[in-house]
């Protein structure tokens, strides 16, 4: 079925989740420990000067992007970034500075504070000049990003790298936006049936929101329900278990995306 979209790469970082293979094991066999740290970002593909400048959020996003890409040439895959809070840490620092006696900002802090900082650094890291996007749909940022990614796969050879990431905001914003831990996931999507796929999906946009089924593991469910990027977990669980299953993710805080997932061996 050529109309299918194939997931041909996954990158992931979360609490105690070092990469997609460790996450897959936990999704299959349990043992998730929510209090463990999310591995710090490395952003290996960035030139050293840019790597020093990039925020922890950006480095986390770049690491999952790199993992999902695998052996594909990063300069030839267009990308799409989505996040609810974006650069919450640097934004907090800016608010702190602006409310203090000396309001001068650091130029690096300012350009790092834009919502598309990760997308911008990724284009520098990858050398990719293809279009990118930087989206937000509050708690539905993952689903809205995935929908845009699916829509952008037009030609049979198209591939697109979707990167969803969110990290807890520092106090006092955290009192108004509670998030237990940092989480980032990247999916490399393809329309090319020749690509080796982990799963294939057939999708439908539904104008109504549909409640997602909670994950059985309460700690994973807490992560899913508080970190918008972790709304990807039910989809990832189905892929890990190689199940044929329909998964629903929210889109735009109103509609939803119904994903009919089929495993590939």
């Amino acid at each position: 079925m050529t109309a299918d979209i194939h997931i041909i790469g996954i990158g992931l970082r979360g609490p105690g989740l070092l990469n997609w293979p460790t996450a897959r094991e936990i999704l299959l066999h349990g043992g998730f420990e929510s209090l463990r740290e999310t591995p710090p970002g490395v952003a290996r593909l960035l030139p050293p000067t840019e790597r020093r400048r990039a925020t922890t959020v950006t480095r986390l996003a770049l690491d999952v992007a790199e993992e999902a890409l695998g052996h594909y040439d990063p300069s030839k895959v267009s990308s799409l970034f989505t996040s609810s809070g974006g650069e919450v840490g640097i934004v907090h620092e800016i608010f702190n500075t602006l409310s203090g006696p000396d309001r001068r900002l650091s130029p690096t802090a300012f350009h790092n504070s834009v919502h598309n900082a990760a997308a911008g650094y990724w284009s520098i890291a990858s050398g990719c000049r293809m279009p990118t996007d930087s989206l937000c749909a509050y708690d539905d940022s993952f689903g809205s990003g995935l929908l845009e990614g699916l829509l952008r796969l037009q030609e049979p050879q198209d591939r697109i790298l979707l990167v969803a990431y969110d990290v807890p905001a520092p106090y006092p914003i955290s009192a108004h936006r509670s998030m237990t831990s940092a989480f980032a996931v990247s999916l490399l999507l393809s329309k090319d049936p020749k690509d080796q796929a982990m799963a294939s999906i057939n999708w439908r946009y539904l104008p109504n929101s549909a409640p997602a089924l909670p994950l059985k593991d309460p700690a994973l469910e807490a992560l899913r329900s508080t970190n918008p990027a972790a709304r990807a977990l039910p989809l990832l669980e189905v892929i890990a278990k190689k199940q044929a299953h329909t998964v629903v993710v929210g889109v735009g805080m109103q509609g939803s995306l119904s994903l009919e997932v089929r495993p590939c061996y």
Partner: peptide
């Protein structure tokens, strides 16, 4: 936070004040 600072806040506001129920999205690329 949700209604003001979050990058989606004004998209959400526009949809609600126009009483629309289609998809809503914010694009934030500076």
């Amino acid at each position: 936070y949700r209604e003001t600072q979050n990058t989606f806040a004004t998209a959400d506001f526009i949809r609600r004040i126009l009483q629309l129920e289609g998809p809503a999205l914010t694009v934030s690329t500076a």
